[in-house]
Amino acid sequence: MLEEYISDADLKKARENYGTTENPNETQQFEFALNLIRSKHRAEIEEGLYLFQNVFARTKDENIKRDTLYYMAIGQTKLSNYEQALKFLQSILNVQPTNEQVRDLYVEVNKKMKRDGLIGLGIVGSAAAVGLVGIIGLGAALLSKK
């Protein structure tokens, strides 16, 4: 799900469809939100997250609530908001601790978070190294001038 995308054309169709639906019920809202989450574009993913929040608030169906949390976790992961994603998944696991699908996603998001963190550290690390070389170089230059 994290690497599966909807085409812009299909999403446009879904949006037109949804736009002509009067008083969409929760299933229709859910479906459209799901299409938005599958987008490549940040703004649409955010729109999907917002719509899912609405679904979550209005539905009385525990299964729909759970599915909504799952997809909000996917949306948040795509926006690199890993901690929020893990929080959503954890709240499902509190109720269904053995749900393998949710556990798998939890592990994957956690991995992604760590990898992104390492990349961040890597950049900081190499910048620091450049800085250090710079300072040493400067020192050497100063020394050789003497």
């Binding site: 799900m1 799901l34 299964n63 759970r66 599915d67 799952y70 997809y71 269904q96 749900n99 699908q101 949710v102």
Partner: peptide, 8 residues
């Protein structure tokens, strides 16, 4: 087993 969410 809980129902599948989307696809597995």
């Amino acid at each position: 087993c809980p129902h599948t969410i989307g696809v597995e």
